[in-house]
């Protein structure tokens, strides 16, 4: 047992804002959020290496403009490297490829390494990097407040078609308020129970029943205390005349400038191209190119 036995919970911090005052930091948070969402969608939708490379280029350019130190950027993908390697091996072993289009480079026992494998691993890696770096860029350059306000403003048009957009944004806001409180509360409960003989260190094995039985005295009071806090917050909101989104005014306003529209347009064009690449034949071309070079 270490001195920081209960401290893992304190590490729950929100966001990782890096104030370098770059043009990306100054960009309209709505645009950044929209760009982030488009990126997730585009990267999930495409399986084209060329398309992913395009998206990746966009993200890397963003990092450069935002002046995020390379170390920060790299640390984002470090945790997944070992498991990417694992995936590569998995791919090589498990999926036999009997495709006319593929070239076998290397064969040992049941392990075969083919072009298709190489491309698959490259694809995975590109997908990961684009997503991780894209969303990290967003959180490095946008404060939590900007994110919540941005979300609310971005969702506002949905309000007009009857979706509870304002309500959802406020819900997210409340959730963000409560996460640090939950961390505090859990730490207190764990310490109090450890003081009364509960042993959170042991029982890590497969004995899940024992583990679950230790969770119950932790989770039940945690949830009940949280509900009690919720009751207080409900009263506080009602005392301050909250009756839903209708007729509310807003302290914070965003003013999109020409640069913001330009940024959005750029992102849309690049990502559209990335998705289109998967539809067209660009992929096959890349594939051929790789095979040729390898030979």
């Amino acid at each position: 047992m270490s001195a920081s036995e209960f401290e893992l919970l304190r590490t729950v911090t929100l966001g990782q804002y890096l104030p370098t005052a770059s043009p990306i930091h100054r960009a309209d948070p709505r645009v950044k959020l929209a760009a982030g969402m488009l990126l997730v969608l585009a990267v999930t939708a495409t399986s084209s290496l060329a398309g992913l490379m395009l998206a990746l280029t966009l993200v890397v350019a963003g990092f450069a403009i935002a002046r995020i130190p390379v170390g920060y950027a790299l640390s984002g993908i470090k945790p997944m490297l070992p498991f990417l390697a694992l995936l590569g091996i998995f791919q090589a072993i498990a999926i036999p490829q009997n495709d006319a289009n593929t070239t076998v480079y290397w064969r040992w026992a049941f392990i075969t390494l083919t072009t298709r494998d190489a491309v698959a691993v490259a694809l995975l890696f590109a997908k990961f990097s684009a997503l991780v770096w894209g969303l990290s860029l967003l959180s490095f350059t946008t404060t939590t407040t900007e994110l919540t306000h941005g979300t609310e403003h971005l969702l506002r048009p949905l309000q007009r078609i009857g979706l509870p957009a304002h309500e959802f944004a406020l819900t997210l806001n409340v959730a963000l308020r409560f996460i640090p409180l939950l961390a505090q509360e859990t730490e207190r409960l764990m310490k109090a129970q450890a003081s009364r003989g509960a042993d959170f260190g042991a029982g890590r094995g497969w004995n899940f029943i024992r583990r679950f039985r230790k969770l119950i005295p932790l989770l039940v009071p945690l949830i009940l205390a949280t509900l009690q806090r919720a009751e207080d917050l409900i009263l506080a909101m009602e005392a301050r005349c909250y009756t839903g989104g209708k007729g509310r005014t807003h302290l914070v306003h965003f003013q999109a400038r020409a640069a913001d529209y330009a940024l959005l347009a750029l992102v849309v064009v690049v990502l559209a191209a990335a998705v289109a690449a998967g539809v067209g034949s660009a992929d096959t071309l890349v594939w051929r190119a790789i095979s040729t070079i390898w030979r």
Binding site: T171, E238, Y242
Partner: peptide, 22 residues
């Protein structure tokens, strides 16, 4: 009330996130 719905959704959402995060 609207406040009740929002707060309960918010705190339970926070709890789900917290359980996953930790």
């Amino acid at each position: 009330t609207p406040a009740r719905k929002i707060v309960i959704a918010g705190v339970m959402g926070a709890l789900a996130v917290f359980l996953g995060w930790t």
